[in-house]
């Protein structure tokens, strides 16, 4: 299968993989849906227990396999597991961006923001903005 991007005139919207967290940010994303707030449907979440547990390799893998961007919906200070979740996740983002650069992928394709369990509006805003900024980048390098 091929990616459908590149057709002249109509570019398909950037695909975003969201790493969310079961107790916090996924709940916030749920709230956006329950409130019928709209964001681009080309964003799909994979929930994990905590954003501090994301492997940079997964980020690279996603960008090499059909996604145009990865968004980490971090627990932030709401994290039920670790108080310094923000710092830990930020380190993962640093490592991840380095890994992307090594693989000739723009580090801007990885973004992180804390999304709390009621952060429905912020999440929607992040999705819209991230999609917009991804549109300005060239198509994903590593795509098949």
């Amino acid at each position: 299968m091929e990616k459908g991007s590149g057709t002249a005139g109509e570019q398909s919207p950037p695909r975003v993989l969201v790493f969310s967290t079961v107790f916090i940010s996924d709940v916030g994303i749920d709230l956006a849906g329950s409130s019928h707030m709209h964001y681009p449907p080309s964003s799909i979440a994979i929930p994990l227990p905590c954003s501090s547990g994301i492997k940079p390799e997964w980020i690279l893998y996603a960008l090499q396999h059909g996604f145009d961007g990865v968004f980490i919906a971090a627990d932030g200070t709401d994290c039920p597991f670790v108080p310094d979740c923000t710092d830990r996740t930020a380190k993962i983002v640093d490592d991840g961006q380095k890994l992307l650069e090594e693989n000739n992928i723009e580090p801007e394709r990885l973004k992180m923001a804390a999304v709390c369990s009621v952060c429905a509006e912020p999440f929607v805003k992040h999705m819209k903005n991230f999609q917009e900024s991804l549109k300005k980048l060239r198509p994903t390098q590593g795509a098949d």
Binding site: K3, G4, G66, F67
Partner: peptide
Amino acid sequence: GYTDEQIRAMIDAMEVLL
């Protein structure tokens, strides 16, 4: 429940034509 293989498989499963 969140193994490397599972995460990769999920990403692979979504790698399709839009």
